[in-house]
Design a protein around this nucleic acid. Sequence first.
DNA 1: CTGAAAGCGCTTACAG
DNA 2: CTGAAAGCGCTTACAG
Lengths: 347, 347
Amino acid sequence: MATPRPRTQGHAGPSMQDVAATAGVSLGTVSNVLNHPAKVSPATTQRVRDAIAALGFVRNDAARSLASGSNSSVGMVLADVENSLFIDMAYGAQEAARAEGLKLLLANAVCDMQFQDEYLDLFDESRVTGVLLAPMQDSSAGIARMRAHGRQIVLLNYAPRPGTCCSVLVNNENVGYLAARHLIDAGCTRLAYVSAHGDYQPVQDRRRGVRAAVEEAGPGVSLEEIDSGGLTTAHGHGTGRKLARRSADALPDGLVAVTDELAVGIIHELHTVAGISVPGQVAVVGCENNRTAGSADVPLTVVDSPGRLMGQAAMRLLLEEVSAGDRHRHATVVLEPELVVRSSTPR
Amino acid sequence: MATPRPRTQGHAGPSMQDVAATAGVSLGTVSNVLNHPAKVSPATTQRVRDAIAALGFVRNDAARSLASGSNSSVGMVLADVENSLFIDMAYGAQEAARAEGLKLLLANAVCDMQFQDEYLDLFDESRVTGVLLAPMQDSSAGIARMRAHGRQIVLLNYAPRPGTCCSVLVNNENVGYLAARHLIDAGCTRLAYVSAHGDYQPVQDRRRGVRAAVEEAGPGVSLEEIDSGGLTTAHGHGTGRKLARRSADALPDGLVAVTDELAVGIIHELHTVAGISVPGQVAVVGCENNRTAGSADVPLTVVDSPGRLMGQAAMRLLLEEVSAGDRHRHATVVLEPELVVRSSTPR
DNA sequence: CTGAAAGCGCTTACAG
DNA sequence: CTGAAAGCGCTTACAG
């Protein structure tokens, strides 16, 4: 119980060896107290715990994972921490990780592929239990790199090349379909789909769904596709201003914006600036349910993706893959979106 | 250049030993190629690089930091990833970290002290170069634990107990002052400060600033303090509804909301639901400049905190502390906020 | 239930 | 510029 003098050498803290000496037991016993408590007698356990407390001992995780060959963290690389869907996914993943005693480490790629690759490599070198990746662009190269190193990786919100890895997706075609369908049901006949080019998959998927709903509705309903030049609120403002200049009969009466930011920007210009009533003259649906969507100029009707469930599902797939080893078969989980009606569409 | 058969044993990848064997050099030389390239001849370097590529060798970071005693990551624990100020801080910290060749690992405590403590411990056990903590409550215990273990920690957006550690703060008193002062300058005479109890420091600091501005203005200006029971949009809605029931002359004409969410909720109820014009009848200022603030029912006038600069400053303080060793003296960096006028206040 | 020993995969002096 | 050796701090059989 005597407090031994702390190691003076640098700021290397006390080691398990020091704990063992203080407690008067062997190194292995200290390790057992920490990792296999059932193997140690209560009395010994207590002596060791006291020594740990007295010394302020902190396990060295590097030594631990080096010796054990395992690691209690999962790394998650997010293309964009500002997107609330991504935050929800991180939250769900964290819940599922904790349920297994694992920690979730986050890295923000700030929409930059170089950052994304660097963080993938960092997690790779850290020998994390596995990696979750929610990208905004094709990331086949990075995925292949991880897998070539034997590291498990699960993709979120972006379909991998078939058979490359596990993934959790939203049925984005249905996102587009539900959005357009809702407008059509509300009586809109001149729809527009506002989106931009680029390789962000959801854009294309949602477009297909929008088209499907319009075709299904028959000749009474038309579809215009508008290129906003980008996916942000600023691009929405630009698009909104252009639309506001049109004559009333050239204006779409129902608008599906591929991102909520686009929708919010458009509504601001149309409704607040130009006085074109939303949803009176133009109804607008967003495709994401961002945090901002509910508190916009006109609270936005959206098609919601279940981010938290996606995160949970991804973590479960990852852990299954890790434990299955060679028996593993890649799986894709597709979750369904849901319409959330607010004020930017009739009713 | 011959591709040797990959190790079949488990999924332990090739080691530096394997690389050395393939390249026909010794282990130390491989290490030098990786860590001290100048010490190795170009020809040898190339042979080693080829071997690394051929084998798909990935450094084992655990072994690396165990052997070297250092670690190239900084851990950052955020109380709430959904708060855009915190995201900005993370962004700034990441920039500053990269400038020094360090990676920033993020952990989201989801406003839960238990999570926060667990992640602090995780980073502690990982022997990260240092820790950045942006808490929402008093975290003295966790800070003391880190420091007792010799781990450097810098606090963001929350003042530590004096002399406990370095910190980067916003002058939150000035946040309150600027907000109130702006309202007074705009002609408001019946101010209210909407906030809630709890130990989130900015709430108290901003209150002091609001009071100071009102006192400075003299007897013509009054201040009411309203307890919203919490800091979220929902609490704002509740508060807004209560205010809307008041007679017109009992209504404050200028409102400082301690969080943007509160402000947005209040404005929604007042302006959009009850038809009480903002800023016509009631002017509203938020204290944070969240992402949502600009795209609210009425774009919100706010006092902005320089999150990115705060993150950069914190990372610099941390790295200074790490390199200074015993010569280090704790420092507090206080950055000044700035008024951003939008539509929720006159002009 | 306890202890002595080997080994995880690197880095770092140190000698050549 | 290169190579052999020690050691970082643990975990894990293995023998007692």
